[in-house]
Design a protein around this nucleic acid. Structure first.
Lengths: 181, 181
DNA sequence: AATGGTCGAGACGCTACCGTTCCATTCATA
DNA sequence: TATGAATGGAACGGTAGCGTCTCGACCATT
């Protein structure tokens, strides 16, 4: 499959160093098979991302805010443990800082994830677990920032055993997004 | 200056795409000026990093834990706002996930930063602002994770005005690293 | 069996960078 | 001022990927 081969090359070399020649070879295809379908590497990559994006949907509301946090972080751990996904994500983050080519792609991914986050916060507010004047942006940065820092920046392979500790601290932090303001 | 040119190329293209030819040209130097001094791009990069690393030292203990957090985050914001540093850091993070070439380099940088963090936590424990059985690793991920997420992953240019909000939440989160365990 | 489209494979000219080598100029020191 | 080391700059052959194009093999439909 061409998409699979693309992601493997992406994870291995980073977006800018992807050689469509290698992608085709890895997929057991001819270069023309790619150029026939997509006008550029960017369009190719957009379609590939869109193809896997659907797998991330499905946020199910839990009983308590803490349960929601746990579910959210567990899903995040699953993604960030994926050997291809974690590399591609980190590469897109780095890539966006130096060029705007992949910005819309990453923006959409982030935005989708954030929608789940907003819904989670709204539920918690409705349950009176959070106050309504919460700084949502700040809260979402606290939701996954520490986990991302641990797994991506420091390369830890966080397990579900570490999850519970994160959940407790995240909950305390986010609840503090209301106080003092 | 060769180092300056290296970092500019690094920020612009990422480590693997650095062309020493361009670095030399950008510095107004000949390619041989680089190859004469360093046997490889890696050694060149190591020296360059080591050269700027000294500027990050100097942790001064404050009155309270909250003051320490504020000082730490302010210093972090300064680095992460730097147009070259932020790109180089994000690139190293991505690069380490796909190759171990830059690992020792990034490990040392992270480790230095973390030493300040540990000292900070120790001070807070000594002051009885934190309990002694604190999970230090977790605490440090919470210290800068959300800020990193905001500035690097989402591209925000956090200002000192946003600092105070982060400080309050980080403090609450880290203090929660003791409770429930 | 004949036909039309898609496929893989590879050749094409082109550009970029590699790491080395050479040379004429510059610069600092004696 | 004379001398020797270091420098900027350019050329070298080699590798790699670009995007286009051609071709024979294969497969499905008729």
């Amino acid at each position: 499959m061409l998409f699979r081969a693309l992601f493997e090359e992406w994870a291995e070399n980073g977006y800018t160093r992807i050689s469509l020649e290698n992608v085709a070879t890895r997929a057991g295809a001819g270069k023309a098979a790619i150029y026939r379908r997509w006008p550029s590497k960017l369009e190719f990559a957009c379609d590939a991302i869109q193809n896997v994006e659907v797998m991330w949907s499905g946020f199910i509301q839990q009983e308590t805010f803490k349960d929601d946090i746990r579910a959210y972080l567990r899903a995040t751990i699953t993604v960030l443990r994926h050997p291809l996904a974690r590399r591609v994500i980190a590469d897109m983050v780095a890539e966006r800082l130096r060029s705007s080519e992949l910005s819309p792609l990453l923006d959409r991914i982030v935005s989708v994830r954030r929608q789940f986050g907003y819904r989670m916060l709204d539920c918690a507010i409705a349950r009176n677990e959070l106050c309504a004047d919460l700084d949502r942006e700040l809260a979402l940065d606290f939701l996954i920032g520490p986990l991302y820092m641990s797994m991506i920046n420091r390369g830890n392979s966080t397990t579900l055993a570490d999850l519970e500790k994160h959940v407790a601290v995240v909950e305390a932090g986010i609840k503090a997004c209301c106080i003092d303001r």
